[in-house]
Computed example of a mutant assay.
Amino acid sequence: MNASTLNIVLKDESKIQLLKTEINAEISAYEKLMQKTGSSINLYFNEDESTFLNTQGLSNLINQTLNGSLNNVELAYICDCLTLAENSEFENDLAKEIVFEIADPEINGGYKSIEELKILAKSLQIK
C-alpha cells in the first residue's frame, strides 16, 4: 500500500476502490498468515509521502467497513500499516488508540465485529 493512495482515500472516500485494488494481493497473504499462530506477517507500506490521520478520516475508514466497501481484514491491514509507519501522525490520542485497537488482530482478540466497529465509530463522534 502506498501512503499517497491512502491519503487520496482519506480525503475522498469515493476512491476506496483504488485502495482496494492496490492492496488486494497484500490482503490475501495477510489473511492467510493471520490464521497461523505465531507467524511473522509482512506489511507493505510505502511511505512515499507522510500521512495525517484525523478523526474524520478514521471515521470514514470505519464507515467504509460498516457499509461493506471495505472488509474487516482490509481495515485491520490498513491500521497495522499505520502503527508501523514512521511518517504517520494522528490528530489526537483517541484516533491513535482506535487505530492500535483495530490493528494486530492476533494480539487484540481477532478482527473487529460490526458491533465493535459501530462502538468505535460512535466514540469518534463524541468530542
Rank of each mutant, 00 (worst) to 15 (best):
K112Y: 04
T55Y: 09
K11Q: 12
K32W: 00
A103D: 04
E74I: 06
I62V: 09
D80M: 03
S28L: 02
T21V: 15
E89P: 03
P105H: 11
K96M: 11
D48S: 13
I114C: 05
T51S: 01
S28F: 00
N72F: 07
N67L: 06
I119L: 13
A29D: 13
T21A: 02
E116G: 07
E101C: 10
I107Q: 07
E97V: 14
L6E: 07
A95I: 14
I62C: 03
L84D: 10
F90R: 12
K11P: 06
Q64D: 14
T55P: 03
N108H: 10
S88C: 14
V73C: 00
E86L: 14
I16K: 03
L10F: 01
S113E: 12
E31A: 04
E49A: 06
C81T: 15
K36R: 14
N42E: 04
K15C: 12
Q35P: 01
Y30W: 06
G110T: 10
L82H: 08
N2A: 09
N67I: 05
N92Q: 09
E22H: 03
L33V: 08
M1E: 14
E49K: 12
N2M: 15
Y111A: 03
M34D: 06
L58W: 01
I16D: 05
L61N: 05
T21K: 00
I102M: 15
I102F: 02
G109T: 12
Y44S: 13
S123G: 04
L70P: 01
N72S: 05
D12L: 15
T83M: 12
E47I: 11
V73G: 00
E101K: 09
L61F: 02
I126Q: 15
P105W: 02
L82R: 07
S69D: 09
L94T: 15
D93S: 11
K20F: 00
L75M: 10
E86G: 15
Y30G: 02
T21E: 12
E91L: 08
A95Y: 02
K96H: 13
S14Q: 14
L53V: 14
I16S: 02
L75E: 14
G57N: 02
G68E: 12
C79V: 06
A3L: 11
I119W: 11
S4Q: 13
E97T: 09
K11D: 15
L66G: 08
A25T: 08
G110A: 04
L84A: 09
E101Y: 09
M34F: 08
T51N: 00
K122C: 11
C81M: 12
S39L: 06
A25Q: 13
N92K: 06
E89A: 06
L19K: 01
C79K: 04
A95L: 11
P105Y: 01
S28D: 01
N60F: 02
D48C: 08
N46I: 10
I114M: 12
F52S: 12
D80V: 03
L33H: 03
I41H: 00
N108Y: 02
K11I: 07
S88L: 13
L94F: 06
L84R: 14
K118S: 07
N87Y: 13
N71D: 11
N42V: 05
S28P: 00
T5P: 01
C79H: 07
E74V: 07
L94P: 03
N87I: 08
G38D: 04
